[in-house]
Amino acid sequence: MKKIIGWILLIILAISSLLIVKDKNNIYNIGVKDSEVEMKIRYKGLKNAIDFTSNDRGLYVAFENKIIAIPSTGKPYTLIEDKNYNITTLECNGDKLYFLTNNEILSLDINNGKLEQCLSNLPNKGDYSKVLIRGYKDYLFISIGAATNSAVVGSDNQWIDKNSTGYDISPFNIVLNKNEKGAFVPQGTSNEDNEIIKGESIGNSSLLIYNINTKAIETYAWGIRNIEGLDITLDGRIFATVGGYENRGLRPVENDSDYIYELKKGYWYGFPDFSGGDPLDSPRFQGESNVKNPPLLKKHPMSPPAPAYQHNDLNSLKWIAIYDTGKINGQNTLQLYFYDCNKNNIMCSSVNGVPNKLITLKDNCTVSNMKIFKDELYILDGNHGFIFTLAIRK
Rank of each mutant, 00 (worst) to 15 (best):
K2Q: 14
K3L: 15
W7V: 10
L13H: 00
S16L: 01
I20W: 00
K24E: 03
N25K: 08
V32Q: 02
G45E: 08
I50R: 08
R57M: 06
R57Q: 12
L59S: 04
Y60R: 03
P76G: 00
P76L: 00
E81W: 11
C92A: 11
D95T: 09
Y98W: 05
L100R: 09
N111V: 05
Q117G: 03
C118F: 13
S120C: 12
K130C: 08
L140P: 12
S143N: 05
A146M: 06
V152A: 08
V152I: 13
N157Q: 08
Q158D: 06
S164V: 04
Y167Q: 01
I169F: 02
I169T: 03
S170P: 04
F172E: 15
V175K: 14
V175A: 08
K178E: 13
K181D: 09
Q187M: 06
G188I: 01
T189N: 10
T189V: 13
N194D: 14
E195D: 09
I196R: 09
K198A: 14
E200W: 09
G203S: 12
G203N: 05
N204S: 07
L208V: 09
L208C: 08
I212Q: 06
T219E: 04
R225D: 05
N226W: 08
G229L: 05
G229W: 09
L230G: 07
T233R: 13
F239I: 03
T241E: 00
R248W: 09
G249P: 05
L250P: 05
P252D: 12
S257M: 07
S257I: 15
I260V: 12
L263Q: 01
K264E: 15
G266P: 03
G266F: 07
Y267N: 07
D273L: 01
F274H: 00
F285H: 00
Q286E: 06
Q286H: 15
N293G: 07
P294L: 05
P294S: 04
K299S: 14
P304Q: 11
P307D: 11
Q310P: 05
H311Q: 02
H311V: 02
N312W: 03
D313N: 14
D313Y: 14
N315H: 10
W319N: 12
T325M: 15
I328F: 02
I328E: 01
N329T: 12
L336R: 12
Y337Q: 05
D340V: 11
N342G: 09
S349P: 05
S349R: 08
N352H: 14
N356L: 14
N356H: 10
K362V: 00
N364L: 12
V367P: 15
S368W: 07
K371V: 04
I372W: 06
F373P: 02
D381Y: 05
F386K: 14
I387V: 10
I387R: 01
I392Q: 11
I392G: 01
R393P: 00
